[in-house]
Write a protein that binds this DNA or RNA. Sequence first.
DNA 1: GAGACAAACGTGGTCTGACCACTGTTATAT
DNA 2: ATATAACAGTGGTCAGACCACGTTTGTCTC
Lengths: 211, 211
Amino acid sequence: MNVSLQSSKVYIEIVKQLREMITNNRLKPGDRIPSERELSERLNAGRSSVREALRALELLGLIETRRGEGTFVRDFRGHQLVQLLSTFILQDEKAKQDVAETKYFIEMDCLRLALVRLEENSLQLLKDKIHHVNFSEDEFFYRIIELADNHLFLRIWIILKDYYRSLYIDEPQFVKADYVHLLRGLEEKDVDKTVNAYRKLRNLSILTDTN
Amino acid sequence: MNVSLQSSKVYIEIVKQLREMITNNRLKPGDRIPSERELSERLNAGRSSVREALRALELLGLIETRRGEGTFVRDFRGHQLVQLLSTFILQDEKAKQDVAETKYFIEMDCLRLALVRLEENSLQLLKDKIHHVNFSEDEFFYRIIELADNHLFLRIWIILKDYYRSLYIDEPQFVKADYVHLLRGLEEKDVDKTVNAYRKLRNLSILTDTN
DNA sequence: GAGACAAACGTGGTCTGACCACTGTTATAT
DNA sequence: ATATAACAGTGGTCAGACCACGTTTGTCTC
């Protein structure tokens, strides 16, 4: 912390240290964080710097402070994500378009990722899905995004999906053949085939890749 | 501020005051905020409290501070998302990886979009950028994302960029040749060339597309 | 007068020490 | 055993002191 090479600000370093501390010690919401004075000593920093870091995290809602008691990790599983996004999404027509576009691209990204990280049995599961009577497009892609194994993409996608559904009420028709092609592409680990199948499936023309 | 009736914390009050100050004075991104010492006087608060507020806003990405110069309002489009993302960022190492990966993919998506929506003069602007002495990777890609003309991507990217910067302190080295290739790909509207140039630029191996 | 250099000033960055208010624990008196 | 008082620990806040850095100003030189 006190090291000279340190170009970054101290409070930023402390934020990082705290993050590590929370993960390494498996601290869960409700658990207590060392006191400001103790952190100050342990991290070789002034208490004011520690406080700057803590206040920032507090404003972010990551920790909670109770005078006389201490500082605690907060329960941040609150899924009020959609609400917040909604504040700026429902603007103009262009925004709706962006939602769809972004969703498509992320799905495509995840297909590419899934292509690399795919395993045998998971493919079978997808096959079962499309042959099932109660096929759900969202469930299908949810599984794809999961296979991509990128939590951030998953979160973003879920939000986008909800908006997408609220913006475009018309249920997309299920063309089984398109999905079959998609799965075949995945099975053969053929990027082009997979991506093209996806485009066909979504009726995408502008987002052409095959120049 | 110092009044007893004030149950809320001082730094929270300062945050509110600052928000009012920014809106009332119509402060725009790039505009300067009074110095810490002046705020301390004007708001009847200690400088440390003022700093706690400022640091918190800084971590949120709402303001920017430059030592020796001052504190400035920042472009805070979509800052609400920061809060959300941050909640889960602090979890595991995998999350960091996801941030990087997501950022890369979105940049690649926007390259694909820019490829379609590109115009003459904007390409020239990019060329100027990479030949400029003060080249900034972030600025370059910001422009790319803008060209993609998808506001949602832009918002997400800005947040990811900030986190990326805070997670990976090591500045990426600027290999001009890679950027030249990238621009050439854009110029020729060649998707594969562009994408491959980007991969080279980022040293991406896992995200292989060219099966 | 124009330009180069140096000093002064203003700014954020950090630390220390001092209080205060509040909470929980411990020791004490009843 | 219970109620009360003292204590220790914690966050909340402030004031003052440096430092590092950038800008401005002023002076000197040519």
